[in-house]
């Protein structure tokens, strides 16, 4: 059984959905945050991929592309001691309290 990111040839009949979703600003920001962290030597693209590949398979399947990036960036930054899980928890909760939750 291949790892969850290793998708080549997995059985599916699903047609290719060519509709583009409207990018949310946080997605743009997350994409470029990764670039900035790379430029500063904090996190390279191979680490990004490794972080994505370490996502729990059920979450990998159900999350969107940049949700996976967010999870990976967090894994790497916490692992390197740049940020702690607790401070991310606290700040994320504060943002969600202020802005609301998906219904």
């Amino acid at each position: 059984m291949p790892a969850v990111h290793d998708r080549g040839g997995l059985p599916t009949d699903e047609p290719i959905d060519r509709q583009e979703h409207e990018w949310a600003d946080w997605e743009r920001q997350t994409q470029s945050l990764r670039t900035v962290l790379d430029q500063r030597g904090i996190m390279n693209v191979d680490e990004l991929r490794r972080g994505i590949e370490s996502i729990d398979p059920a979450e990998y399947e159900s999350s969107t592309y940049f949700e996976r990036w967010s999870a990976s960036i967090e894994t790497i930054l916490v692992e390197k001691g740049v940020l702690s899980r607790a401070e991310i928890d606290e700040r994320a909760q504060a943002l969600r309290d202020r802005w609301g939750y998906p219904g």
Partner: peptide, 12 residues
């Protein structure tokens, strides 16, 4: 082989 570390060789 399927080493535990990150690698870019697809299963197929």
């Amino acid at each position: 082989e399927t080493p535990p570390h990150h690698h870019r060789t697809p299963w197929y």
